[in-house]
Amino acid sequence: MTPGQLAALHARCFTHPRPWNSAEFASLLDSPHVFALSRPRGFLLGRAVADQAELLTLAVAPDARRQGIGRDLVDDFAATSRRRGALRAFLEVAADNIPAQALYRAAGWQHAGRRRRYYGADLDAVVMALPLQPGQQGG
């Protein structure tokens, strides 16, 4: 997907926090540490540096949700991060985005903290972590 296509789908999925624009996607994709995973009607951007990975954003077209696209992308993120040497992954998700939190928990992510007012004065972020090596404990 092009930065413009990523931005268009992101805008369909997010209003608060605000969607990212094509210049922001282009800038992220220029980094050697950032990777994009895509499926028809969905994408995920991740970053892996040293032994840690971060799920930057996940977007699935609203009319294509609950069909396994997000779960496939999250699983691919974990596998890609492992291949890049990450031992643990992190993400922030809006505290009011209960469906996304449920998706991540179902994929093995665990609550790791909270960032107050991360998305503005009225919206916290829930920090979640995923161990990426066999035998690791999350949390």
Rank of each mutant, 00 (worst) to 15 (best):
T2M: 00
A106L: 00
S38W: 09
P99G: 00
L37T: 12
A7F: 09
R71E: 15
G138I: 01
L44N: 05
V126F: 08
L9V: 13
V74D: 07
A129N: 14
Q5N: 12
D76S: 12
A11M: 02
T15H: 10
E54F: 11
M128Q: 13
G120I: 02
R105K: 14
H10I: 03
L45I: 08
G42V: 02
D124T: 08
F90A: 10
R18N: 04
L91V: 12
V60I: 08
F90T: 11
D75C: 05
L58Y: 11
P99C: 00
A129E: 15
Q52R: 12
S81I: 06
T15K: 00
A78E: 01
V60F: 06
D30P: 05
R105W: 10
A107Q: 12
R105T: 15
L73K: 01
P32Q: 00
L132F: 13
P131Q: 03
G68R: 00
L56E: 11
A86S: 13
S38M: 03
L6A: 13
R66Y: 08
A106S: 15
H10C: 13
D124V: 08
A78P: 03
E24K: 01
V49R: 02
L123G: 12
I98Y: 06
L44Y: 09
V127N: 05
R117P: 05
R65Y: 09
A11P: 10
V60M: 02
W109C: 11
R18W: 06
R117H: 14
S81C: 09
V74A: 01
F14M: 03
T2L: 00
A11L: 00
F25L: 06
S27H: 14
T80Y: 03
N21P: 02
G4E: 12
A36C: 15
F25R: 02
S38L: 01
G68N: 07
Q110V: 15
T2N: 04
D75L: 07
Q67A: 13
V127T: 14
A106Y: 04
L103N: 11
D96S: 08
L91A: 13
H10P: 12
P40C: 00
A64Q: 11
R47M: 10
D96G: 10
L103G: 13
L6C: 11
R88L: 12
R39N: 04
G85I: 01
V74F: 06
V34Y: 10
S27C: 11
G4A: 14
F25D: 10
Y119V: 10
L103I: 13
R47H: 08
F90D: 09
G70F: 03
P62L: 00
T2I: 00
A7S: 07
P17L: 00
Q133F: 08
I69Q: 06
P62T: 02
I98K: 02
G68T: 08
P131G: 14
R105A: 15
A11V: 05
